[in-house]
Design a protein around this nucleic acid. Sequence first.
DNA 1: TTTGCTGCAAATAGTTTGCAGAGAC
DNA 2: GTCTCTGCAAACTATTTGCAGCAAA
Lengths: 146, 146
Amino acid sequence: MSDPNERFGAIVKTLRENNHKLTPQRLAVAKVLAHSQGHPNVEKIYEQLMPSFPTMSLATVYRNVMLLKSLGEVLELGFPDGSNRYDGNKPFPHPHVICIHCTKIIDPDLVSLRDMTAEVADETGFKILTHRLDFFGICRDCLSTM
Amino acid sequence: MSDPNERFGAIVKTLRENNHKLTPQRLAVAKVLAHSQGHPNVEKIYEQLMPSFPTMSLATVYRNVMLLKSLGEVLELGFPDGSNRYDGNKPFPHPHVICIHCTKIIDPDLVSLRDMTAEVADETGFKILTHRLDFFGICRDCLSTM
DNA sequence: TTTGCTGCAAATAGTTTGCAGAGAC
DNA sequence: GTCTCTGCAAACTATTTGCAGCAAA
């Protein structure tokens, strides 16, 4: 996990460099994503901001998350059921471990993970831009209460 | 790629064993998925069946794809944009290489791919049930016409 | 004959968009 | 002062569901 304050600063810097206005709503979304506690979805970000921004619209959250994603400052995690969750703390490809029971998401340290991008590019002729590695299972907490 | 006829047979066997009726529509969906040419989405399966089953409903395709998925005979590939595509030819986790330009999907042979399931289970305490490894990029064809 | 399956149409849920006013710079 | 951003409500799209009739076994 990166330092959330540093990540927030980096996001703000990118926004400035690309001439986007720093509205309170936009900065608030950026701050939540810089922490990315639990890899929130749009709804969670919205709920988290409601107390401080009672009039904020869900559409505004969507627009800002999309903007940050297009700037490469947020990683989008889409799931087979169509749901999306976001990580603005580590906005680069990295493996995830997802509990299908409580929907918790963990970032594991995989010592044996080598980058297979070159091999894939070599074998398929593709220019590889990004990748994704997710493991699905049941977490320790859920296992113990079953 | 497995032999589509064998896969079709295996799917039919599973349907029988689970006491599901073998309607013409269901068998037609199973046949398309046994081939899984280009990893179709529901719409594509529907279009492919329209000539032979002009009155078939999209809902029927959805229902049968979901049934086969629940029986473990189809692998669902969900993407961040919310779209889903299916593979009934190799219904077990395997890596995919996806062209973000023409949406083509390829199954690469990765000689160096080791199974990291045990390591992830060990490090996180999860009971790992499945996983997913996707590479995104631009295919040779699209690269050459850019 | 029984029970599950299909087609249709309506409902649903998550996300996007048009517009007029507000606010960042 | 300009131009982007926001809130609202409506639109949109992919998917699911209720229901009555149909068909597999």
